[in-house]
């Protein structure tokens, strides 16, 4: 039971990362690697502020703003300077490595004995349940905000930009601004996720962003396959559930005795398989038809 609670709450904290990756990878149709830098950026910003005595909520908001700025940098690189989005994300990610070290002043910042978002309110529950409840509340609020925003005229324009930039330009909307806005929102969410994970783990580490893009992708794809993509609302829910399922899968393979060091390899293979699924499926169907 403890393991289930821990898995679900980890899934919730990482769900914001998954939503962020969904916003770029699916909504904007960009593979944005900024994520690998904005996740630890959120962690570093929040941890540094908490150690300096800030309220954990303030620290999370600051982390979000920092992540948004990182997203804007990538956005400007790829729209105003026409650097391919993938490369623009890599550049920001690399730059953020130094930025994160500067923010923390060292590679690892422990949050032992510090008040975090998971300890400041006494909900009369143990630490694990508190993490679950607070994680759920935050994810719910973020999901509702996303649902609202992407239903507004502006949000609809961002989504249409990813589907068909020609169409949206022909309707009078500056696609460059929409791309920047999408990257801003995405990286803001990713940074919040980093801030939450740091507080839950009890430390921020400059290396904690490695592989986050793949974790995000895994969550998005698992969610889409298992829970559907009928509408934007459906996708949002799928991605959140996908993040939880991903954590469950990880927990199960670890229980089965897989060395934790192999986790990233495992995740990468999982995502590669999932992404090649449509092609493999088409081939398979062809072979089966041919055999008849």
């Amino acid at each position: 039971m403890d393991l289930v609670i821990a898995t679900v709450s980890q899934g919730l904290l990482w769900a914001l990362l998954a939503i962020g990756v969904y916003l770029t990878f699916r909504v904007l149709d960009i593979a944005d690697l900024t994520v690998e830098g904005s996740f630890p950026l959120g962690a570093a910003t929040a941890a540094t502020l908490i150690v300096a005595g800030s309220h954990p909520l303030v620290a999370i908001v600051a982390a979000c703003v920092a992540g948004m700025l990182a997203g804007v940098v990538t956005g400007i690189l790829c729209t105003k300077f026409k650097i391919p989005a993938l490369l623009a994300g890599i550049l920001t990610m690399i730059a953020l490595y130094s930025v994160n070290l500067r923010i923390m002043g060292k590679a690892n910042l422990p949050l032992l004995q510090q008040d975090t978002i998971f300890t400041i309110w006494n909900l009369g529950m143990d630490k694990m349940m508190t993490t679950l409840v607070i994680g759920a509340v935050i994810v719910l609020v973020v999901a509702l905000l996303n649902y609202w925003f992407f239903g507004t005229e502006l949000g609809t324009a961002v989504r249409a930009t990813g589907f068909n930039p020609h169409m949206i330009r022909a309707n009078g909307i500056n696609t460059d601004n929409m791309v920047v806005l999408g990257l801003l929102l995405s990286n803001g969410l990713v940074a919040i996720s980093g801030a939450l994970v740091a507080q839950s783990n009890g430390f921020a580490d400059v290396g904690m962003g490695v592989g986050t893009i793949v974790i995000g992708l895994a969550s998005v794809i698992i969610g889409e396959v298992l829970f559907g993509t009928r509408s934007f609302k459906n996708c949002l829910i799928s991605v959140i559930l996908g993040s939880i399922v991903y954590r469950a899968v990880i927990a199960i393979v670890l229980q089965m005795g897989m060395p934790p060091n192999d986790l990233k390899l495992f995740t990468a293979i999982l995502v590669a398989l999932a992404l090649s699924m449509p092609l493999l499926q088409a081939r398979w169907n062809k072979i089966r038809k041919g055999g008849r």
């Binding site: 239903g151 609809t156 324009a157 249409a160 309707n171």
Partner: peptide, 17 residues
Amino acid sequence: NLAIAARRGKSPTLKWS
């Protein structure tokens, strides 16, 4: 799609579309 086209040339706002 129609909602976007209905507002062609106007800046998008935060009104529900």
